[in-house]
Every structure is written in C-alpha cells, then in structure tokens.
Nucleic acid binder design. Structure first.
Lengths: 197, 197
DNA sequence: CCAAAACACTAACAACTGTTAGTATCTTTT
DNA sequence: AAAAGATACTAACAGTTGTTAGTGTTTTGG
C-alpha cells in the first residue's frame, strides 16, 4: 500500500487524527475499529502504530485540542476591553456557532465521545469544562451587576446557550433549509438579544 | 442466583429495559456488555435471553417508546383548542423539559444512542423525528401568521429549542445549583417569552 | 401434588477487539 | 550508491463480544 500523505495536508499523524474525528463522530468511539480507521486512511491497521501510540491517544488529541481552542478564545474575549459584558457573551456564542458549523467532527467528538477518555484525562477534561462554564457565568453576573444584562439565572442561561448550539448537528444534514449566516443570526437574536436590559 | 423481580416493578423485561437505559446512557450502547447488564440485574448474561430477543431489541424498545410519548403529547397539544400557538409551543417545551428532568436515562439514550439502531429501525426513527420537527415548525408558522409569534425562522427556532433542553444533562450532575422549577422557568423565560409578539 | 411453563445456570461458539513482534520496502541523508 | 530512518506489511496474541445449546431448578396452574 502507498504512503498516507504527500506532505500536503499536514503531518501523517494529523491526517489520521482528522479521519478518526470523522469516524468517531459517525460511528462513535467504541465501535470505530482501528481497521476501519486504517481502511479510511489507506493502510493496514498495524501501520497506524508507527504514527500514534493508541486509539485513546487519538481521542485525547481531539478533545483537548478543541477544549483549548475554546479556552483560548474565552481568554481573548475576557481581555477585550472594547466589549461590554453582553457583547462578550454574544461574541462567545458566535464563536461556538462557528465552531459547530465549521468543525463539526471534532466538536461533536469532544461533546459526545469525551466520556470514553481514560483516567486521568476524563477527570481533567470535566474539570476544564466546569471552569469554562464558571467563567461564562461570571461574564453574565458582571453584566447583570453593571446593568447591561437582564436579571437571569447565570447558570441556567449558560447551560441553555452551550446546548442550544448543538442543534447545528441536525442543520448539517439538511443544509438547504437555511444558510449558515441566517442560522447564526437567528440563533443570536433568539438567545442573546433577549438578555439585553 | 435469585429471580430478577418480585412482581413489584413491573415485568422482568421492564426491569431489564430500565437497567439497560441507565447503562446505555452511562457507558454508551456499544460498550455496554450483556454481562454488564446481567450483573446489574443480578443474573447471568445468558439468562437475559429468556426475556429479550437481543441487545438491539432493548435499544429499539427504549428509543421508540420515548419517541411515541413525545408524538402522543404533540398530538394532544395540537388538538387543544384552548391554547393559542405560542401557548402550544410553550406547552411542548415544558414537556421536553420535564422529560429531561424526570426520564433522563431513556431520553438521553434516545438522543445519543439512536444511531446504533439497526436498519430499518434507524431510518424509521430518523423519519419520525423529521416529521415531529416539521409539526413543531408548523405551530410556529401558524403562530406567526396569526400574529401571536414574532417573525422568526421556524426551523432554526425548533432546532434551538430541542437542543437547548439537552443542557439539563449537566444540571443533573450538580443539582444543588438550582431547583428543577427554577431551571424550567428560567429556560421558558429565556427561550419562549422572547418569541411573543 | 403433579405437570407445565417460566426462568436460571454452565459451557461454548465464532467473530472481532486493540496491540505487538518481526520483517520488508520506500525515502532521505550522507 | 550506501546507510539510516521512516513507514509499510503479515501474522499472531490474548481478551472480549453477542448469542446459542443443553440442562437443571423454581414457580405457577389445575
């Protein structure tokens, strides 16, 4: 069999990781076999182990890469003094929407398959998520205190926002219905505008 | 080993099905073994087959039972002439919220594990879901036409509503944060009240 | 209290799992 | 063109999977 890549789409490991993300999303992590993945990449199963350490490592790579991107974006938005707190929240929601639109495989694996992470990775992941949610809550709390956001339950609102964007999964199956931009604006109007005081 | 049940919690098959729902939610369908399920129920794996036909049958049972309950409720609400269209929508959202609060195992399995249904069950399931979503859209469309609901994208709103309630999964892990009633009211205010014209 | 039905058990199956060892081939560097 | 390194291959492993066959035991109905 031929080589995995011609040096175009990044390293060999990267090609494998992205193929894994697609398969993990479609078939789920436990029922994606190394032979499935190998076939998708054009190689025998054993050959994958010249590039990766284990199947679990692939899941870790996907989940923590995505988690880090969300955290990095939050960091930036928190530090951006040109935005008030409602705008900070809106900016983060828009980021989530664009991730769900453009990086469906990785984001869905991070959401739905992270429970298959081994320890201690799973605990670490859940902890990072808790912290992330807490920081979003704090944006809302400060927005309320400063009179920029209506009196709401910050925890419930964050829960709702982070879950609502998961609907984009279904949009991907029937894209003709509505454009990506229309979808984003509709979601922002529905879930963020109503929070303005 | 002793018998599965003492005639209290319904039939033996029902006990198995509910145990399966919990395991399928926690561990995922593919990585829940029949030996896990048997152990949970207090029996050897082979004994399960005196009550069920296969592992797949359990998943079918769970998914279609839940789907039928949602459809039945929608039927009722559609036929209830004492409600205007915004109220019909709110009533359905409240039903979803209460299902996510009180029937987490079965509802999560229906949402997250239905992709493991065998054909033709999987196709049937997806079709039923499409029809269900379409009927909710129609409630919104009529509400707009009658001036009871703001001008919104019905498809995007339904997607958002049905996904937002999935956040309740995380609420279950940290119940102390907020009561079930507070959560429900917060979600309704956040996602339904804003739709009023 | 006996026959029938319901239900649990042990043992085993073929298929599939992630992974390793050992070896061959291709690519890059010297 | 030879040496080194990267990467592919085949073959095989030990463990797990859902499920069946065959048999024994408990409960139910007459």
């Amino acid at each position: 069999m031929g080589r995995i890549t011609n040096r175009k789409n990044g390293s060999r490991k990267e090609v494998i990781t992205l193929a894994a993300a697609r398969l993990f999303r479609e078939k789920g992590f436990p029922s994606t076999g190394m032979r499935d993945l190998a076939g998708d990449v054009g190689v025998e199963a054993a050959s994958l182990y010249n590039h990766i350490r284990s199947k679990s490592e692939l899941l870790q790579e996907i989940c923590f890469r995505v988690a880090n991107e969300f955290t990095a974006q939050l960091q930036e938005v928190e530090a951006d003094d040109s935005l008030n707190f409602l705008e900070k929240l809106e900016s983060m929601v828009r980021f989530h929407i664009s991730m769900w639109i453009n990086r469906l495989d990785e984001v869905m694996v991070t959401n739905n398959e992270s429970k298959y992470l081994e320890e201690p990775y799973h605990s670490t992941f859940l902890n990072e998520r808790r912290v992330y949610v807490r920081r979003l809550e704090q944006i809302i709390e400060e927005g309320i205190r400063k009179g920029q956001i209506r009196q709401v339950q910050p925890y419930a609102v964050v829960l709702t926002l982070l879950s609502a964007v998961r609907g984009i999964e279904y949009w991907h199956r029937t894209k003709k219905n509505i454009s990506a931009n229309e979808l984003e604006e509709s979601m922002i109007v529905h879930m963020v505008n109503g929070l303005r005081k």
